[in-house]
Each structure stands twice: as C-alpha cells, then as structure tokens.
C-alpha cells in the first residue's frame, strides 16, 4: 500500500547554501522504505507535490531524512517548514536500488543527486566509496555522514575550493583502476549519469542510475514524468515515478 499522511518534522538543518535537511517521524513509511525511493511532499499554496529523494532511513527510530535544494518557489516554501510542523507526504514511492550484499560498491552523487547515495552506501559501509561532486565548497554536503557510516568519501569540486578539483567521472575512473567495484550507483545531472554509465560499461561493471523528471501524480497514473529507455532493442518512454527512479544504466537511452 501507499501511504499518504501528515508527519511531524523532528529536526531541521540548513546544511549548505540553499540546501535543507529535514528529519521526519513516520514509522509506517520508514519501515517500508528502501534506499533509492522518494517521497512526494505538498507545498502550501502550490498545486503539485514536490518529489524529494530519501537521503536516509532510520528504521529503529522510525524516521526519514530528506535533503533538498531550493530550486523554485515551491521548494522555498518547503524550506520554511520548521520543527514541530507537519509535512504532508505520499511515501515511499518508486523502485529503489538493487543491493548486492557483501560486495563492493562505488556511489557517485552530483550536487543534489548526492543525498540518495547516503542510504545506499550505508548498506555497504566500509565496502563503499562515495564520490560526490559539487560546483564549489559552499555547496558540499553529507561528507561527514558518509565518514560516520564507515564509507570512504571522495569530494570533488569544479573549482577546486574543496577536495579534488575536477569531475566525479575522473575520480570514478581512478577508483576503478585501484579496485574494481561490483556495482556503481549514481544520481545527478543527466550528463554526469551518461558519463558514469559509459565508464561502467567500458569496465563491465553493473550500474544503477537514479533519474529525475518533472512529476505530477508520483505513482504512475498520469504518465507525465517520462524518460527514454530501451526495451527489447526499442526505445520507449518509461516513467520515472513508477518504473524508476532507479534504472539499470543499460536501460536508459541517454541520447546524443
């Protein structure tokens, strides 16, 4: 079953410029949720809900952690919610990441694509490396959380103001050369995902990507959130909310 309800916010932090981190008490959702899934949040005064990826799941305490970026007026409204207020959420939605127990993973996040990498990398702990890329140091998030989970973080910035100067794809190539992982997870801009998928394919590594698209219903009924995928050698329109947001990178038609 899907759940729709109002859940209390029990913690809120501004973690970088325009980036907010909410902890929501929702035991029924937390018990069902898996890494890679998302929630649909109602923003007061706006008609459509905002899809937000699940950053972390604490089943013991019955909480979800949602990290989002203020992109427009709707997410700005969400950023005004405070501890003690309720959040109206449909959750958990979509298909999560495939998990290979006891294997080695590299998780690649670009910008606001980084949060879903936390929950999946936690399942691998010391067997995971989390490569995160941001435009600049002021936008870097979650590096301490990866460390606390035993995951090895590698921070990249476009301008070199923190971590390694350069793209996550370069860091990914270097890591693969050191030790080939069994699976790669990635979430971020399409151009980054395309690059990660190509590297995975060249090295014969399984790769799961999480996609983003403008949504309405969030459950697979309205068919607006399309992405091009390949099925039986033919390109079709799949829907990010129900068929994804996680896809095997080989299924995705990145184009050009």
């Amino acid at each position: 079953m899907y759940t729709q309800g109002k859940y209390p916010i029990i913690a809120k932090k501004a973690i970088a410029k325009g980036m907010f981190d909410l902890t929501v008490l929702c035991p029924d959702v937390a018990s069902e949720a898996v890494p890679g899934q998302f929630v649909q949040i109602a923003a007061e005064g706006f008609f459509l809900r905002r899809p937000i990826s699940i950053c972390d799941i604490d089943k013991d305490n019955g909480t979800l952690r949602l990290v989002f970026e203020v992109r427009g007026k709707g997410t700005e409204k969400l950023s005004e919610l405070n501890v003690g207020q309720n959040i109206d959420m449909i959750a958990p939605l979509g298909k999560g990441f495939k998990v290979l127990s006891g294997k080695k993973a590299i998780c690649v996040g670009g910008g606001i694509g980084t949060p879903p990498m936390l929950s999946i990398s936690k399942l691998y702990g010391k067997n995971a490396t989390a490569i995160s890329g941001f435009r600049t140091a002021a936008l870097a998030i979650l590096q301490d959380d990866f460390k606390a989970a035993g995951v090895t973080p590698i921070l990249c910035t476009d301008d070199g103001t923190a971590g390694v100067k350069g793209f996550v794809t370069d860091a990914l190539k270097a890591e693969i050369e050191k030790e080939k992982p069994d699976i790669i997870y990635a979430c971020g801009p399409m151009v980054m995902l395309k690059g990660v998928a190509a590297i995975a394919e060249q090295n014969g590594i399984e790769c799961q990507v999480s996609l983003e698209q403008r949504m309405a219903c969030g459950v697979g009924a309205c068919l607006v959130c399309v992405c091009r995928t390949v099925r039986d050698g033919k390109e079709i329109f799949s829907h990010v909310c129900k068929d994804g947001p996680v896809f095997d990178s080989k299924e995705v038609a990145f184009g050009g």
Binding site: F47, R214, M215, A216, C222, L223, V224, C225, I236, F237
Partner: peptide, 12 residues
C-alpha cells in the same frame, strides 16, 4: 508512445 518530456508544467 506519447510526447517527449517534460510533459508537465505547474500553473497557479
């Protein structure tokens, strides 16, 4: 197949 995305835009 339907149309290319984006297929949705929010309005007032």
């Amino acid at each position: 197949m339907g149309n290319e995305g984006p297929r949705v835009a929010e309005t007032p």
